[in-house]
Design a binder for these strands. Structure first.
Lengths: 175, 175
DNA sequence: GCGTAGGTAGAGGGATCACTCTACATCGTC
DNA sequence: GACGATGTAGAGTGATCCCTCTACCTACGC
């Protein structure tokens, strides 16, 4: 049996991703987590902690999805990354970044903001490393963010647009 | 006296922008709108309608802020637009796009999704028209979205990054 | 002077919610 | 076979929330 903590985190992540952060009640979250209310509160002592646990779990899954088993040739990596973002959106979330959504739902939480910053920084860092575009972390992050947001309205068109912007990035990288 | 409807919409917009969509109670919103509870419900018969009214108001203000009094020379317009986005974020919102935030807070609302789509489509359309980059609406939208999201973490660095990406866009636009 | 339109003030209902607590089940270990 | 750790089941509590409703006020046209 998978240990209880990750089972809870996985269930919470699914619930928040599917229904947003405002709507699901703690009892809904209990059902999604597949444990009793007492156990749920043992691992996540408040509803805010449930949000944090869900995002922490998603962070790990997102990094794996994007960066595992990338092609060796660095020129090919960028397109693959953008395609994987599109695939992630199609499978996991119909709308925007869950981390930004969590902060938007509760702008007063310092813990959420810190987690968001950490998540984005690590995505940008690993994207730059994987593509060889060191020093261009923020350019990469901007395209990735734009793709994530625009995908919900434009699907594959947004992916090809991100690829085009990414290629331009590599061109004037040499300059 | 400004008419009651816009006074309410302006107050609601400020309240949601400052405190998110989940936290403020209807009584908080009443205080922000500066009217009585009865009048508030007369113009916006449910809390969901209050969200819609606030976003409708912001839509108009955002378009004015971005597109009024742009320079005549189209080559200069793109940079001005990105700077205005940065200025908007600094003044109006510390975090992300309010429209995306509203959808994230209540993913089930069809009305919100429709409003989001309309808002983004009009921003992209007018940005393309103002810059002369017709046919590149989605590229422009992707940069604008990326800038809006990344600004909260990287401030001016995100603006200069958007400018760089925008210039690349113009270059291979000739190709 | 009076009616009407559009406003204020605020109490109250009915429902929901986050969270706690009691009582009981299961299982591996000595 | 007793025990401690870890789990389930679910009722109860106090607070909060959205929304309605009654009662009253003010400005203005005729």
């Amino acid at each position: 049996m998978t240990d209880t903590k990750t089972k809870i985190a996985a269930g919470l992540e699914q619930a928040f991703a599917a229904r947003g952060f405002a709507e699901p009640s703690v009892e809904d979250l209990r059902d999604a987590a597949g444990v009793s209310l007492r156990t749920l509160y043992k691992y996540t002592p408040s509803r805010a902690d449930m949000v944090l646990a869900a995002l922490e779990h998603r962070h790990g899954r997102y990094l794996s999805h994007l960066f595992n088993d990338l092609p060796k040739a660095q020129e090919a990596v960028l397109d693959v990354l953008f395609e994987r973002v599109g695939a992630w959106m199609a499978i996991e979330t119909s709308h925007g970044c869950l981390f930004h959504g969590a902060v938007a739902a509760d702008p007063g939480s310092e813990g959420l903001r810190a987690l968001l910053a950490r998540h984005k920084a690590e995505v940008a860092r690993r994207a730059a490393a994987a593509t060889g575009l060191d020093g261009r972390e923020i350019d990469l992050l901007l395209i990735l963010e734009g793709l994530t947001q625009a995908w919900s309205l434009h699907r594959d068109t947004a992916v090809t647009s991100a690829k085009r912007l990414g290629h331009g990035l590599r061109m004037n990288s040499a300059a």
